[in-house]
Lab assay of single mutants.
Amino acid sequence: MIINNLKLIREKKKISQSELAALLEVSRQTINGIEKNKYNPSLQLALKIAYYLNTPLEDIFQWQ
């Protein structure tokens, strides 16, 4: 199972779901689904999230 800290990191950086979704060219619902662990992002999307949040990938997504 993958645990993610996306919501915590996104809120710490004061970025809304809508703003992050626009940067990543995905829907706000996609961001919401990832934050709620409804599904895991593709590797490409995970890397883009880490890039736009300027945060190491392993700080956002962790195996458990």
Rank of each mutant, 00 (worst) to 15 (best):
F61R: 00
L45I: 08
K48G: 07
Y39T: 12
N54G: 11
L24Y: 00
F61N: 01
L47C: 10
N5S: 05
E11H: 11
A22I: 11
L53F: 08
Q62Y: 07
V26P: 00
I2A: 09
I34Q: 00
L24A: 11
L8I: 15
Q64P: 14
L53P: 00
Y52K: 06
Y52D: 02
D59K: 11
L45P: 00
Y51M: 10
K12H: 12
S27W: 03
Q62W: 06
I2C: 08
I2F: 10
W63P: 04
A46C: 07
A21D: 02
L20N: 00
S27R: 08
A50E: 04
P41T: 04
M1W: 06
P56K: 09
L20P: 00
E25L: 10
K7L: 08
E11G: 07
N32M: 15
Q29P: 06
K13A: 12
R28C: 09
N40P: 14
A46P: 00
A22H: 13
N40I: 15
A22N: 12
I15E: 01
K7P: 04
K12E: 13
L57K: 03
K38N: 12
W63A: 04
K12F: 10
L24E: 00
R10A: 02
T30S: 06
A46T: 04
E19P: 02
K13F: 09
P41A: 04
A21L: 02
I9G: 02
K12G: 13
I15N: 02
Y39L: 13
E25F: 08
L23I: 14
L6A: 04
D59F: 09
E35H: 01
L8K: 14
R10F: 03
I2S: 09
I9K: 04
K12W: 11
F61P: 00
E19D: 13
K14G: 15
I34E: 00
A22Q: 12
L23W: 15
T55L: 07
N40F: 13
E19Q: 14
Y52H: 13
Q17L: 12
Y51E: 11
T55P: 00
K7S: 10
L43C: 08
M1F: 08
Q62D: 06
A50D: 01
E11P: 02
L23V: 12
S42H: 08
E19K: 14
D59V: 09
I3C: 06
Q17Y: 04
T55Q: 06
I9S: 04
L23G: 12
I31L: 13
E35G: 01
L47P: 01
K36A: 15
L8A: 15
Y39E: 10
Y52I: 14
N4I: 03
Y51A: 10
E58V: 09
K38M: 14
I31K: 00
K12R: 13
